[in-house]
Amino acid sequence: MSQKHHHKSWNEIKANDSWAIFKIMGEFVGGFEKMSQIGPCVSIFGSARTKPGEKYYDLAQKVAYKIVNHGYGVITGGGPGIMEAGNKGAHLAGGTSVGLNIDLPFEQHDNPYIDSDKNLHFDYFFVRKVMFVKYAQGFVVMPGGFGTLDELFEAITLIQTKKIGKFPIILVGSEFWSGLFEWVRTALLEQHGNISPQDMDLVKIVDTEDEVLEVLDAFYQESNLSPNF
């Protein structure tokens, strides 16, 4: 490839980047307009690969059902697996069921349990992630993969650095999460001092749908806050 051709290609790439700002702005505006109407919700995260009938699929559905009966709506990533279970539980309970879908080549497809007027589509992960955080009264994090961990640690980081207000982050499945947070405690806190002792209090690990509601209730009672009902 000639130097001249290389520079032309680079300039074309940068020009496309400049125009992309309008698409990014459009996704933010559309997301803000729709999400501002939904009322208080809890975001549920977890693997897209979990199948119906598996332990954490069924538990996510029960958690979502219980959350709706407690007066919240449910936000998920809108796809299959744990996301589908969360939307299904909300749908069966007759509550708000929101899906924030991302266009991916293989993994993602809309699940059928999202309210028709609350099914949003995004091209940009970072825009979608803003919607999860900005419009959630709490995070319920089921077992998942890299995407789930990404959402979890971004939320912890934003709260830790006070870029957003504190809200409950509830990890469901002690058999799945305990090893990770034991490593956080020993490696990050005790061995290297990379976090503060109080940072360990930003998350709660539970095993049942009842415990999820107990943590939500306790958080808003102790902090003298109320969800934005």
Score class of each variant (00 low, 15 high):
G173M: 08
L213G: 09
P52Q: 08
G77H: 11
Q108A: 11
I67R: 01
N11A: 13
A90H: 07
A90T: 14
E222P: 01
E209M: 01
F106I: 14
G95Y: 07
Q3K: 10
V42F: 02
N111I: 03
K4E: 15
H109A: 15
V215K: 10
V98A: 06
P168I: 03
V98Y: 02
S9L: 15
G79I: 05
I114D: 06
H192T: 14
E12C: 01
L188A: 12
L152K: 03
S97K: 09
K162R: 14
E190K: 15
L92V: 06
L202Y: 13
G81F: 02
E211L: 03
K166S: 13
E27I: 08
F139Q: 13
F28R: 10
K55R: 14
Q108H: 12
Y56S: 01
L189S: 10
H70A: 12
L100Y: 04
K34T: 15
G79H: 03
A15Q: 15
M35S: 03
Y65V: 02
G30L: 05
K51I: 13
S9D: 10
R49V: 07
M200D: 11
V215Q: 14
M35R: 05
D207M: 03
V127L: 03
N111L: 02
F32N: 12
E190H: 12
H5Y: 03
F106P: 00
L188P: 07
P52V: 08
G39V: 13
V130I: 13
Q160N: 03
G99R: 08
A93E: 12
K162C: 01
K55Y: 14
F167A: 07
V140N: 00
L213F: 07
S43H: 04
G99I: 02
D123G: 08
K14S: 10
K62E: 15
E84G: 11
D199Q: 10
P52N: 03
E107S: 08
M131S: 12
I21F: 04
F153S: 06
I156G: 08
E84K: 02
V29S: 06
D207K: 04
L225F: 03
S196K: 10
A218S: 15
E190W: 11
F167M: 15
R128V: 11
Q3P: 01
P227Q: 11
K66I: 04
H91E: 09
N228H: 14
I169R: 05
Q108D: 06
I114V: 13
V172C: 05
L149Y: 10
S47H: 05
Q221G: 13
W183L: 13
K134T: 08
Q37H: 10
M1N: 01
K62N: 13
S47V: 02
I82T: 09
D207A: 04
Y56L: 05
S223V: 00
G86N: 11
W177D: 08
T161F: 06
I21V: 14
Q137P: 02
L213C: 11
Y135M: 05
A64M: 02
E12P: 00
A90K: 07
K8T: 15
G193K: 11
F122P: 07
L100V: 00
N228F: 05
C41S: 12
Y124I: 14
H192Y: 13
K162W: 01
D210R: 01
Y124W: 09
T76I: 03
